[in-house]
Amino acid sequence: MAIKRQRAFPHLLTNGTRGIHRRLTLDMQSGASQSIEVDWSDDRGATFNAAQTVALGASGNGWPTLWRLGIARDRVYRLTWTDPGNTALMGVFLDLEPVRS
């Protein structure tokens, strides 16, 4: 039976200034060719944009990456995936560049 998994992350703040979200990289282990949905909210989690689907690839460790994610003052990322097999989310890395605004 497939299990739905969801992981939301804390607010990413840049001291009241905007920040450029250049790259989001996932460190995941999967048992088969799977995909994961990544969406985010720029209004403190009240609403989320349409999810982007990212392929995890074949079995083993993968580093799926999303590029050019826009600018925000306060962003919340959320990951969702459904799979009957074994998966492990080992880390998420974000390249965030604060800008003057």
Rank of each mutant, 00 (worst) to 15 (best):
R7A: 12
P64F: 08
R100D: 13
D42P: 03
R7P: 12
W67M: 11
L89E: 03
R78E: 05
S101Y: 14
T17P: 06
G62D: 15
D42G: 12
V99G: 08
G19P: 00
A55W: 02
H21A: 14
W81E: 05
L56S: 02
P10R: 06
F9D: 07
W63L: 14
G45F: 06
L94K: 00
R5L: 07
L96V: 05
L56M: 11
R22A: 11
G45T: 12
R5H: 12
E37H: 15
A2E: 15
R22H: 11
S101E: 00
W81V: 00
N86E: 02
N49W: 09
S59N: 04
A46M: 10
D27W: 09
L89G: 00
T53H: 04
E37F: 11
I71R: 15
T47H: 07
L89Y: 05
A32F: 06
R68F: 02
S59V: 01
T65N: 09
T80S: 15
A2P: 11
H11Q: 10
Q29H: 08
Q52S: 13
L13F: 01
N61I: 15
E97N: 08
S30G: 09
A8C: 15
R44P: 06
A58E: 11
A72L: 05
N86D: 03
A32P: 00
Q52D: 14
L96E: 09
Q34E: 11
G31D: 15
T87K: 03
G91M: 07
I36N: 14
V92P: 00
L79N: 08
M90Y: 04
P98H: 08
S35E: 08
A55C: 01
I3Y: 15
A46G: 07
G85F: 02
L26P: 12
Y77C: 03
G16W: 06
V99F: 07
M90R: 04
R22N: 10
Y77G: 05
V54E: 07
R68I: 00
I20Q: 13
Y77V: 01
W81Q: 08
D83C: 10
L66M: 12
D39H: 13
Y77L: 05
N61A: 10
Q6K: 13
G31E: 15
W81L: 10
F48N: 05
P64V: 02
A2W: 13
Q6V: 08
T53S: 07
R22Y: 09
T47Y: 03
A55L: 02
L24P: 00
M90N: 10
G57Y: 03
P84H: 13
M1H: 13
N61S: 09
G62Y: 11
D43L: 04
P84L: 11
A50Q: 11
L89S: 02
